[in-house]
Amino acid sequence: MVFQIGIILLVLFTGFRYAMGWSGTSIETYCPLGGLETALSLFTHQQFTCATGERNLALFVGLLFLTVLSRKAFCGWVCPIGAISEWIYKGTKYMFRGLGKRNDIYRNIPMEPTRKLDRRLRWIRLPVLLLILGFTFWTGELIFRGFDPYYVLFSFHGHDVKMWSYAIIGIVLLGIFIFPMAWCRYLCPLGVALWPFSKIGRLTIARSVEKCIRCGECSRACPHNLPVDEVAEVNSGECTLCLECVHVCPKEDILELHLKGLKR
């Protein structure tokens, strides 16, 4: 959490400096998705798309390396929207735990879909990604800027941010409030772009099957609803290595971080 707060403060500082005209570096230049958006244009037209640049591209390549090593650690540790989603999720759970005891209406908030439905809904991200990449390449403009929660929240009313942008972000935040990590799970285009690389990630959460008391706390704490207590190793491409499962585990040394491919 300290790491995430630090990142958010850095992003706010960068956004504020740019908005005040004290710096020429916008927060957009630190968005790795911009690197993916501009890659095709750079290879075909030898030109960056809109406001993207070499920093986006280098960070995206770096992110691919990071993902192959440590799955979606970027989402769980660096992404400001991931951090905000996680805090909303934890806050909602804490807030409605007490209310749920008194009234059934609150018991199901946040609403966790079944794992089967959750897996299917995650595919929504693919058309979102294709739509963004296609239109960005076609128009040469970052036309979805006004819909991007990262840009809208941290650019201090930057270029292309309109009133409806805030309305959309409000709806997204409300969605996260009701459905845990809704943006990351069902809408984030970067999340689906990273998924194949994350799937082959080398770092993994390993569970000691012999020592585990199967209380299920780890699975209940997982912001991505992964069945940690049912597997020996969490090999899901959606694992962000946020370590929530490790923190809530009542026994020591049951959940560990392992580097796959190397013997103990």
């Binding site: 790491f3 770096g62 770092l203 971080l257 392992h258």
Partner: peptide, 15 residues
């Protein structure tokens, strides 16, 4: 191989 948890932030910062 077991690795310490601080490997994750270190990897993030280095990369």
């Amino acid at each position: 191989m077991r690795v310490p948890f601080w490997t994750i932030p270190v990897l993030i910062v280095v990369i």
